[in-house]
């Protein structure tokens, strides 16, 4: 895929940071508002896909390699399963929410439903891990398929 016209590139450049910030917001507030790691990750990945469409795959390929994305995705997955293992070590069961109701990070329990960003125990952390994984994973899929079909046209 070749890059598109300057107008498209400019609009994509303006739109990309906004989309990314919005996606990260959805990830960070996953335990408070509708959304979460998957949804926010999909939003950020779509922003990256927008860049890939506007600038062309060869431009994206020069910036980021597919195996780096793979690595990032593995890290996200490891973070997720690592939290689950920590639940086993500290909470007594795989996936137990060991942070909730403690004085640690994200440990507070909301009083009469007024939860805040610092509540939720391991939930926000898991949202972040999943978000990282989904961003890297979906963008890797889009990139790999775009590059593969691109070669067809040449």
């Amino acid at each position: 895929m070749k890059g598109m016209s300057t107008i498209v590139k400019t609009i994509a450049n303006i739109g990309f940071p906004i989309i990314t910030i919005y996606g990260l917001y959805v990830i960070a507030h996953g335990h408070l508002t509708p959304g979460g790691g998957f949804q926010g990750g999909a939003i950020v990945a779509s922003g990256l896909a927008l860049l890939a469409v506007a600038h062309g795959t060869s431009w994206v390929e020069s910036k980021v390699k597919e195996h780096d994305l793979s690595m990032l995705e593995s890290l996200g997955a490891l973070g997720f399963i690592g939290l689950a293992f920590l639940g086993l070590l500290m909470g007594g069961a795989f996936f137990s929410n060991f942070l909730v109701d403690t004085s640690m990070l994200f440990g507070a329990i909301p009083v009469d439903g007024a939860a805040n960003i610092n509540t939720g125990g391991t939930l926000p952390l898991m949202n972040f891990a999943v978000g990282l994984k989904v961003i890297a994973g979906l963008f890797a899929i889009v990139l790999v398929m775009a590059i593969a079909t691109n070669k067809e046209e040449d």
Binding site: G30, G36, V100
Partner: peptide
């Protein structure tokens, strides 16, 4: 129990967290 306002997130990551691990694995 989970300290989250969003019931769906609490199901996704706490009550049925293992499903979500499976879901993340499917994507992986």
């Amino acid at each position: 129990e989970t300290g989250a306002n969003n019931g769906v997130t609490s199901v996704v990551f706490d009550y049925r967290g293992f499903d979500t691990l499976g879901e993340a694995t499917v994507l992986f």
